[in-house]
Amino acid sequence: MNSIRRIFSMGTAALVLGAGLLAGSSGAAQAAPSDCVGGAKGFTDIPDSLSGRGVGGAGAVIANFGGTPWAVASYQMHTGNVGGTSMGWGVLSTSSSTWGPGAVGWVWMDVTNDNKVSWIQCGPFTTSASGARITTPAYPTSNSASRAFRVCAQVTSPSPVSGITCTPWW
């Protein structure tokens, strides 16, 4: 009986530790849009329709259900002129043909000013609409080698969940 309790206790401890590590590692759970909208932390609000030059890579996030894509979204980093200043921002576009009921697309942008030792997370911003396009607020670019950007995305729904993927630092 003691060995069953010990196994159960160790299993419970491992589960709690694992849940804590998982919760602590999720970038999307540690920040909020309010951290960077309305001019907070040097960010500038931009319209979702703003397009710039694609830089730093792009990718797709796919939540599969039973081996079939349930929700598909693409993400990328853009740079361009915003109010006379060169800035970078993230873009997420959801698929109009593959977007299951209850799917949610998430996008956020990380900015570092100390060569990736630490960073500011802007977002996540979400959409549940198929064929949607959303952007993060923009942040000034710099010639400094210590400033870098990356854009991250994820797709969630009632069952399938994609992994979090990010562009390389740019």
Rank of each mutant, 00 (worst) to 15 (best):
S26K: 08
V151H: 03
S157G: 15
G42M: 08
S130W: 09
S34C: 03
K41D: 05
G52R: 00
G80C: 00
D110H: 11
G20M: 14
A19W: 15
G52V: 00
T127E: 08
L15M: 14
T44G: 04
L17D: 06
S118H: 07
V111I: 10
T79C: 00
W99K: 14
V151M: 05
T156D: 10
G39S: 13
S34F: 02
C152K: 05
G84L: 06
N81I: 02
A132S: 11
G90K: 01
L17T: 12
R147T: 15
P47K: 03
S9D: 13
G24V: 10
G90H: 01
Y75G: 01
R53M: 01
G80F: 00
V155N: 14
A40N: 12
V117C: 03
S26W: 11
T127Q: 07
L21N: 14
V155F: 08
V37G: 03
A129T: 11
G66K: 09
S146I: 14
G38K: 04
V16M: 09
D114H: 03
I7Q: 11
G67C: 06
S144C: 06
C122Y: 00
P69Y: 03
D35G: 06
R6Y: 03
C122S: 05
S49P: 10
G56M: 01
S74G: 12
I7C: 07
S128I: 04
Q154A: 07
F65A: 13
A13T: 13
A103M: 11
R6D: 11
T136V: 09
Y139G: 05
R53W: 00
S142N: 09
G88H: 04
I4Q: 11
G42S: 12
R150Y: 00
F125M: 08
P168C: 01
T136A: 05
C152R: 05
A13P: 10
S95R: 10
C166Q: 05
S146L: 14
A19N: 10
G83E: 08
W119H: 12
G18V: 12
D48R: 02
G102L: 12
S128Q: 15
A153V: 10
W70V: 05
V117G: 11
A14L: 15
